[in-house]
């Protein structure tokens, strides 16, 4: 299991929607960190249905793409560079095939 550790004193939690499920997060926390906590780091299934996960956590490998749903449109963004804000809606490709 992954976990949060105590070297940070996070502020009051916010909530984001991850694949329709409401999860607790902290303002500015990266969505990649939330994938590690809630999906074992999984970001999608590839075209063969294999589980795939984030690799570099610094914007270089392009493995962590998720969909940010806002203003009626869906934007593909790197989860490791995306900061959580209250009410943010994210769709990973972890339940569906999304290549």
């Amino acid at each position: 299991m992954s976990k949060r550790i105590g070297f940070v004193e996070p502020p009051a939690p916010i909530h984001i929607e991850l694949d329709g499920e409401v999860v607790e997060a902290y303002e500015g926390e990266s969505v990649a960190a939330l994938l590690v906590l809630h999906r074992d780091g999984m970001s999608r299934r590839d075209r063969d249905g294999d589980a795939r996960g984030l690799w570099c956590n610094m914007g270089t490998c392009s493995e962590c793409f998720v969909r940010l749903l806002e203003h009626g449109r869906s934007r593909r963004v790197r989860a490791c560079l995306l900061e959580a804000t209250d009410g943010m809606r994210i769709a990973t490709g972890s339940h569906t095939q999304d290549d």
């Binding site: 990649a32 960190a33 590690v36 999906r39 074992d40 780091g41 999984m42 970001s43 590839d46 294999d50 589980a51 795939r52 996960g53 984030l54 690799w55 570099c56 956590n57 610094m58």
Partner: peptide, 14 residues
Amino acid sequence: TLPGAMGAGAMQTL
């Protein structure tokens, strides 16, 4: 490519 396999630096930045 399995979730949970990553660069050591990635783990450290997390």
